[in-house]
């Protein structure tokens, strides 16, 4: 993307709610907030997956931990986001520290599988927490409150909160990617052995990277729970980890905007199929709208097979051509 593009996108995002007509506002604001939250989650995964080359198949564990910790605090009467969200971030970081410390000792397929296994562990643990809804999940009476005269209960205010979190996450990733640490992480992705051989503490760097991503994932989880006022163990299911990976790859792994583009494309595509009837398609295939994931799966398969650089990669290539 060019230098101006991020600012244009930001300006559009900032003015979007004002341009909405009242009748559609609730639906689209809520949908856009969901995209922002998933974009943040996917961006956090992009840090380890795209920049660090660590194929973690368990990122939902950190998003889910954040979602559950903030929800449990809310249900116990701790309403302030200033307590609930940092707590979610802290818990997810801790989970990432423990899971990363063990997982990062393995390589390749074993790493993929052990991260998956850890995420399953968290999934089943949460499933058996009967006090907090077990497999039925936990409904929240209200969203976390931000104070300062802002009512996050309104979709309007929540939209800006989610946008702010995503913007902060993206800016953080941008800074990190060009910092000393970011370059080490990318060097490790290119050639782990050599990175160690020129003097970088590879294991420690990967672990720190893993924890940062876990923390950001935890924040996304806390936002997600507040957004829907509901959380259930499915946020931790392994298919959620797969969905996040899917967003990163669709958007462009190792590219700043990859997570955002991927989240927008995937959720947009789902919404497009499910909520916007195309008559000629419905004439051929009457119930197609109930089978959105057939379309999503096909698009993902096509991207993996034919455009492994993702959408951001294709945009970048076009510009160079």
């Amino acid at each position: 993307m060019g230098r101006a593009a991020p600012w244009i996108v930001l300006a559009l995002a900032l003015t979007f709610p004002l341009a909405m007509q009242a009748e559609h506002q609730t639906y689209y604001l809520s949908f856009a907030s969901r995209i922002f939250i998933y974009a943040l989650a996917a961006t956090s995964l992009n840090l380890i997956l795209g920049y660090g080359g660590m194929i973690s198949f368990g990122h939902a564990a950190f998003v889910g931990t954040g979602a559950y910790v903030s929800s449990i605090l809310l249900s116990e009467g701790v309403a302030s986001a200033w307590i609930g969200w940092p707590a979610a971030v802290a818990a997810s970081s801790l989970a990432a520290l423990v899971i990363g410390a063990v997982s990062l000792r393995t390589r390749g397929v074993y790493f993929i599988m052990i991260t998956l296994a850890f995420a399953q562990m968290v999934f089943f643990l949460v499933n058996s927490m009967k006090a907090y809804g077990g497999d039925e999940g936990l409904s929240l009476r209200e969203r976390a409150s931000l104070g300062l005269g802002v009512d996050l209960g309104s979709d309007f205010a929540f939209y800006y909160a989610a946008l702010a979190a995503l913007a902060a996450g993206l800016y953080g990733l941008h800074r990190l990617a060009h910092s000393r640490f970011g370059r080490v992480i990318q060097a490790i992705r290119e050639n782990e052995e050599r990175a160690e051989a020129i003097g970088f503490p590879v294991y420690r760097c990967k672990l720190v990277c893993f924890v940062i991503a876990g923390a950001a994932g935890g924040l996304a989880g806390a936002l997600l729970a507040s957004h829907g006022k509901y959380v259930n163990p499915n946020v931790l299911h392994w298919t959620q980890s797969g969905t996040l990976m899917m967003m990163v790859i669709m958007g462009g792994a190792g590219r700043l905007w990859g997570g955002v583009i991927g989240a927008a494309a995937l959720l947009g595509l789902e919404d497009l199929i499910a909520n916007h009837r195309v008559d000629w398609l419905a004439a051929i295939f009457p119930n197609y709208q109930q089978h959105a994931s057939l379309g999503v799966g096909t698009v993902l398969l096509a991207i993996v097979l034919f455009a492994p650089q993702g959408i951001a990669g294709m945009l970048a290539r076009k510009k160079h051509a």
């Binding site: 800074r175 640490f181 970011g182 503490p201 940062i212």
Partner: peptide, 25 residues
Amino acid sequence: FTVLDNLALAVQARSGSSFSFWRPV
């Protein structure tokens, strides 16, 4: 990476901490 980036990485490895997350290299 470019030749320069390869070498700069190696220089970075022994000069100062690599746990610097904000300042651009």
